[in-house]
Design a protein around this nucleic acid. Structure first.
Lengths: 232, 232
DNA sequence: TTAATTAAATTGGTTAACCAATTTTCACTT
DNA sequence: AAGTGAAAATTGGTTAACCAATTTAATTAA
């Protein structure tokens, strides 16, 4: 399906197919529930392989714009022409997420999830988070790299937030952050030792269900990164 | 690739393959950069079709855990075993986003993007937003359904936030919100008239680059929905 | 023994053939 | 003329064969 949060190569040719498909929808005045031409027909009309057409259909299905029924055809979803055109244009305009926007988004997420976690965490969540914290501490105290354990600590908090959407989205952007993180080597040894205290504070706040404190401590934790992110 | 933000059917069998793959990685002690067995090998070992294996690989590639090179093989990404196991478990545990979590997430997004939009909007963004606003007003004043125009107004704000990640993620969750929205028929006629004033206020705040006012007006706009979302 | 070269096997990716379910068409009965 | 039912065509989905690039193994020359 070639859906990546980012991806340049080949994207252009896929975008061409998407705009051709949009033009076709406009030309034929297709409304919600209407049937699109068959995949074979479109692959011929657009002069591309059928699998390319299928990829585009799957992508637009992912964004909820189309709906294909097994042995029947592909249909326009319950979204009017205006919104359809607007959203397709948005999709075509999707840029490669830059590091800054990733970090900005992550910070927003974490400040929210940590508050929700403080509100909603169960005892099981708590022990999960604590486990991740202990693993992190051990690594750092041994002088080892603890990027992974740090990550798992934050993901454990996201889970405790009891918001499945945020959880999913966090999981989506996390790998890209790690990659960029290592590329720009943001974190250093010194940071890690401070990190223990910061993590501990966050954990305590969640444990005590002190939402504001949790948010505050998370803000502190991101202080350096936040600053860094705006100095690129 | 069958990546949906949600989706039950068949997911179970895919999850089985994912856990088998995880077990294999653990068993063979594969570390970052190591090569996985070939797709054909795995499809035989797991007793599933090769395309099923490919789907799983693409999914884990999307989450940044694997990396497949064209005529060479699939490799473990630059993520250690601990994080790998943790993230795979998270992926396996991914639930169907419920309506409440979707709304909660959307509100968080919009409160953030509207502030960023107020800060960063260019003149072009402004006229884009204004265009969406006018279209919305016209529909409502004609007594027509303006769900689409409402949506485009909010997406225009997301674009003005100049944060490509948030823009993408908004686009991902939007269709599911619309669907659920219509399912639960949250909005009513009365709401639409009030909506004009609320939209106008938001637009003015963005125009004046008054970030706090923008956030406040957006909060008002979501007031009903927010309340509703917690009364399900 | 080592280095270089070439041939064979393996790889992920792509294309084309196939399948079962659905829809349409049309002859036939009432 | 309307209803019915079967057969043919069309559908999205699946499977298997194919491809070019790469990697590995073997063979040869130094």
């Amino acid at each position: 399906m070639k859906l990546e949060l980012l991806s340049k190569g080949e994207q252009t040719s896929q975008n061409e197919i998407i705009s051709k498909l949009r033009d076709l929808i406009n030309l034929k005045n297709l409304e919600p529930g209407d049937k699109l031409p068959s995949e074979r027909m479109m692959s011929e009309k657009f002069e591309v392989s059928r699998s390319s057409v299928r990829e585009v259909i799957q992508l637009l299905e992912f964004y909820g714009l189309l709906k294909s029924k097994p042995q029947s055809g592909t249909f326009v979803a319950d979204i009017g022409q205006i919104a359809m055109n607007g959203m397709i244009d948005d999709i075509l305009r999707l840029e490669n997420p830059d590091f800054r926007s990733l970090v900005e988004t992550r910070i927003m997420f974490e400040l929210k999830t940590v508050r929700l976690a403080a509100q909603r965490r169960t005892e099981e969540h708590l022990s999960q988070i604590e486990g991740a914290l202990e693993a992190y501490k051990e690594k750092v105290l041994n002088g080892e790299n603890a990027v992974q354990e740090d990550l798992l600590f934050h993901l454990a908090i996201a889970q405790a937030s009891c918001n499945s959407t945020m959880n999913t989205l966090m999981l989506m952007i996390t790998p890209k952050i790690i990659t960029n993180f290592e590329k720009y080597h943001v974190c250093d040894k010194n940071q890690a030792y401070i990190g223990i205290k910061e993590h501990q504070d966050i954990f305590e706040a969640i444990k005590n269900q002190d939402t504001e404190m949790a948010k505050e401590k998370m803000k502190v934790h991101f202080g350096v990164l936040y600053q860094y992110c705006y100095n690129i």
